[in-house]
Structure formats: C-alpha cells, structure tokens
Design a protein around this nucleic acid. Structure first.
Lengths: 205, 205
DNA sequence: TAAAAACGATACCAATCTGTATCGTTCTTG
DNA sequence: CAAGAACGATACAGATTGGTATCGTTTTTA
C-alpha cells in the first residue's frame, strides 16, 4: 500500500468497525489489526482516538452529502421529486447488508454531552442534511420551506430509527409515501410547471 | 436503606448513568459509587454487567409503557385523541432536562448485533410500543390500523431522534401536527361519534 | 433469639484500554 | 543516489475494565 493511501485506509477501516461495533467497543488494537497497519503509524496520523473518530465522521459526512446529491440530481430535476428521491437513496443505504443505523446518531448516542466534539460533529452533519432539504424545499417554492424541510427531515430520522431496530426496508418506503402525501397537500408560491399567476399563493391539492 | 430496596436502587442508578454516559462508558465502579453500594452486593443481585443492563431495560420498559398509558388514558377516552396525546407525553419526556434520547435506541446503537440480548430487549420494547399504537388505531376503527400505527410510530421515532440532536422540544410538537394531518385524512370503518350508516366506509376529511 | 443470609470494605485478578518508546527497515523525495 | 521521513514490529506504561475472594458486620427470618 502506498503511504499516501494509509490515512484514507485507516479511516475506512475505522468507519467500518465503528458501524459494526460502535465507538467505545471498537479498540485501537482492532482497528490496526483490521487495517494491517502498525499502531505507531496510526498515532502518527491521528493524535488520539477521538481525533480518529472526528476525522472518520468528517470523511463520511462529505461522502454522504455528495452521494445523496449525486443520486438525487441525476434522477430528476424537479425539486419536489428530488425531495422524494432522497427517500429512495435512503432505501438503498438501508438495504445494504452492513446497515446498522446512522453512524452519526450512534456517535451522538455514545457521546451524549452536547459539548463533546463527537456530538458536535454529528450535530453538524444533521444540520447540513437539513440544509439540503431546505434548499430543495425552497427551490420547490413551498410557502414554508423551513417547516417542510423539518418535516421531511423528521420522516428521514424516523425511517432510519425504525429500520435500525427492525432491519427491514419498509420504513424507508413508508416514510416516502408519507412525504408524498404531505407534500401534495402543501401550498406553493407559484405552480411549478404551468406559467404562474403573478407570484400569488396557490393551493395545489 | 432497606435491603429489599437495594436492587431497585441499583437499577435506578444504573439507568440514570446509562442515560447520561451510555452503556460502555458507564463502568461498574461508577455505578456502585453513585449508588453507595458495595461491588460484592451488586454482583450478588446481577451475575454480569449485561444482566444489569437487561434488568434495567426491563424495568424501564414496564415503567414507560405504564406511564404513557396512564398519561393518555386519563386525558381523553377518544382513541384518535389518545393517539395524538402520545405526542404530548413524548413532549414531556423530551422537555426533561435529563433527556438524552431514547435509552432503548442508545442500547441498540451500542449493541448492534441482532442476536445480542441487549439489542433484542430494545427491539422488544419497540415492538410493544408499536402494539400500543395498533391497539389505539384499531379502537379508532381506522381502515388500516397496522399501517396507521406504523406511521405514528415512525413519527415518534423521528421526533425523538431529532430532539436527541437538537435538544429542543419542537420536533415533538411538529410530529404531533403531522400526525394530526395524517389521521384526519384517513378512512374509518364507521364514524366515531355519530351513529354510523350500516358499517360502511366513510371519508371524514 | 439464634442461625442464616445479605451486607460493606478491601484487596485482588487477568484482560483490555489508550498511548508511548525504541529501533531496524522501507519508501519518498530533493 | 543520498538524506530524511514514514513505516512495521514489539515491548511497555499506567489506567481502567468486569469480576472474584475474603472477612467482619448487620439485617433478616425461622
């Protein structure tokens, strides 16, 4: 393995093990054994285990946000359909055999103190995920994009939580149907496809 | 302290610490120190730490299910209103200064293997919570009580997850409003209050 | 009230934890 | 190609983990 790849390989291995066993239950010795890297080398890249956790979460945060954007944007250009497509993306992640819940929720669950850097990193990820929903809800010209985004976000979190316990895909599909019904009943500032009537509010149910 | 109370006191202390720091991060030494009980005594009541965790979850499971039933049933007798009242109960638990998320979700998050007894205990609690929603949805004569219950359940889990990260109460209220809109649009087998028309399906929106 | 059980205190055990020190080898890079 | 940095391997440190052994004291109970 080239030395420039070691850091990334360590992060990938750590993420896999954190997802599989959790953060406290995953020891440094297991990580280096699975990665096939010396302990000295790990500590040359990351000062502490907490630093490793934070770096892993940061990497995953960027990967995830890029992945959902890519998935959604290449599927449709309509903002409402994009909001719904996020649930299809969710379904693919839940369908993964390695799915054991959201690693950020797990991280926050094991580092419950709000001032803990790991909690803050998880919190930041969730805030950015919500921001994407807001971006889409705004583009869809909903009358209350922030509220819509929060509702979509709540459905996402609910689906992941239920799927974490049941280990079935159905919650993701159910959440999508709920989102569908929810969005269909919402006010828009202007109708999306038809040339709208002077920016006035329009009921589209 | 009377000796008959020691077991319960240990469970309460353990639950408080598990909620505060998580399961792996809470050591036996901390539990006995906080409880003011000798280690020997703890291990006379519980064979292993896992046994202590399981007993604590069992205790909390019964407490919680009784508490929500009591709260809901003394508030209203209408099944639909009772479904909505579960969100008010949720709001009180989230409003608690000690709220750090659902201890069963945390337990499942730290014991991710589906055959792990702790995971199974958490899973069982969630199954029983869902069963209560089904009971209420059935009493409300919804056409599809199982689906309704699953949707209510998903909203609950979503609200708890979002509240765990944000540490605000709003998700619980938002989930209730979503449930309200959801239930209002649902078919019922017979109208609840008015003497119904021969058991046929009725749209009540 | 007397015997039995449970208690507290403490010392202890082996295993595991995160993190460091040492040192010979390999890779990178100027 | 040579110097310096990064690597692997190993041993080790100090703290902490879950759990046990011992024993004198207190409480329960028959």
């Amino acid at each position: 393995m080239r030395r420039s790849e070691i850091r990334g390989h360590l992060l990938d291995t750590a993420l896999r093990l954190f997802n599989q066993h959790g953060y406290h239950a995953t020891g440094i010795d297991l990580i280096i054994a699975e990665a096939g890297i010396a302990k000295t080398t790990l500590y040359r890249h990351f000062a502490t285990k907490e630093d490793l956790i934070l770096a892993a979460l940061e990497r995953r945060d960027e990967e995830d946000r890029l992945a959902v954007r890519t998935f959604v944007e290449q599927r449709t250009s309509d903002p409402v359909e994009r909001l719904l497509a996020t649930f299809d993306f969710l379904e693919t992640t839940v369908r993964d055999k390695q799915f054991r819940g959201c690693i950020f929720m797990s991280a926050a669950g094991e580092h419950k103190d709000t001032v803990d850097p790991v909690f803050r990193a998880s919190s930041m990820h969730k805030r950015l995920a919500l921001a994407y929903f807001e971006e889409l809800a705004h583009a869809a010209r909903f009358a209350e994009p922030k509220r819509i985004a929060a509702e979509i976000n709540l459905l996402h979190e609910g689906a992941v939580a239920v799927a974490q316990i049941t280990r079935i895909v159905e919650p993701a599909r159910q959440a999508k149907r709920m989102a569908q019904q929810l969005l269909a009943a919402e006010e828009r500032l202007t109708p999306p496809a038809r040339g709208g009537d002077a920016g006035e509010r329009t009921q589209t149910s």
